[in-house]
Amino acid sequence: MAVAASGTGASGGGLRRLRWSALKRNAKLWRGAAAIALTLVLWECGSRASQQLGMQLPFIGLIPPPTAVLAAWAEVIPQFGYWESWYLSFKRVLAGFLSAMVVGIPFGLLLAVSRYCREIFFPPFEVLRPIPPLAWVPASLIFWPTNELSIAFVTFLGAFFTIVINVLGGARSIDIRLLRAAQSMGATKWDMFWRIVLPASLPSIFTGAAVGMGITWEVVLAAEMISGGGTQGGGGLGFFIWNSYMGGSLEQIVVGMFSIGIAGYLSSSAIRYLGDRCMPWRRLF
């Protein structure tokens, strides 16, 4: 909702300043804005139609109209609990994501540069990798002393495997000519790693981070729903949705869903921004 509104607003503001030729070039923006607007209108009409027709339309008739969702949103925005949910979820996502980066990037690079490490660690890694993060939940609830730690661990796992696989793949596919060029100019192993392997792997590190961030959100939300409210490991946007469901507030469920959409968008924007900062040579493409 807010995404749609701000999206059309931004493109509208930008478009006013553009000439006609530029407008035509921005057909993509127009189409996007129109599609979002049309979706909202159809959604509104679809959910309101129930009152006019005296009967509920299938599926769409069950969903609260966008205006009602907006109203519910306006209601929760001043509430402390809503923002606490944001804070808790973000905190968990960041904890899991950052720890996965901190452990996963060096581990992936290690597997890439050392054949022995690859031969030793890769097989067990590949056996553990296909296990979905949520399948780890019961075991980690037993293993870790607090719910919060269990959530953090499961979140970590979700991002960890993806990051490692991406870093490994990226570092292993470095153009051999670059490695040889560096060697032939007298680079030591240390230089090769810091000045060649690491920067050459950055693109795949960021790809891994972007995908890993998405998985982290999925896992955190699911874990929050499972763990429920309470003082320990409770709250968060996942619990916000679950709580709205238990309380029968359809509008708030939708608010929670869009909140997650925005949170995910903010997270991936941050990664894109960091990627641009760390890889200025790739901004050209």
Partner: peptide
């Protein structure tokens, strides 16, 4: 060794 430096096919400047 740097006494025998190679210039490669298609170029191998470090893109970063």
């Amino acid at each position: 060794g740097a006494d025998r430096v190679v210039v490669f096919q298609n170029g191998a400047l470090f893109p970063w």
